[in-house]
Amino acid sequence: MGFYSTSEIRGGMKIIVDGDPCTILENEFVKPGKGQAFNRIKYRNLKTGRVVERTYKSGDNLEAADVAEVEAQYLYHDGDHWHFMATDTYEQYMMNEAQVADVKIWLKEQADCMLTLWNGAPLGVTPPNFVILKIIETDPGVRGDTSGGGGKPAKLETGAVVRVPLFVQQEELIKVDTRTGSYVSRAKE
């Protein structure tokens, strides 16, 4: 798939390091007045999610990775696998428990997600930034509380637990920011 020189590397590019696909976060040029020039490259391993910093001699080549992002709809969970369908091609993809571990609590059927594919196979899935989910379990609120302050835990239909204001009740729909896992507002269907 080709190579990138350290001078071309910038945020968002996908490379292969030790066999794993990675996404570039930062590329810093380090050069002593008299001495070897380096590029300190920070990247996230797309398989493990770990962020690593590695030093390359300026001018080294890094192997490019065939990584693409496609829009896909979450279809269903069959007990073992989570199934998705690409919006453009209708092609179906499935992912295992480990691959969706961090995000499965935000996946509601028919949600529009972003799938990361490596050599055509899914690596990871990003849920929408905001999702609307139903509260299936929470303590009754305390009278007089309108907003802010304290809060209480609420369990959502997907299994996620978020802190909500005291006035929010069971069976209500709420909007949640999936990047922080925090309550945004009450919502209508």
Partner: peptide, 16 residues
């Protein structure tokens, strides 16, 4: 310190 494997092998004997 994580170094590109290719470099660390190539520069194995370069003290500078």
């Amino acid at each position: 310190l994580q170094l590109n494997t290719y470099d660390s092998q190539k520069e194995e004997n370069n003290k500078n």
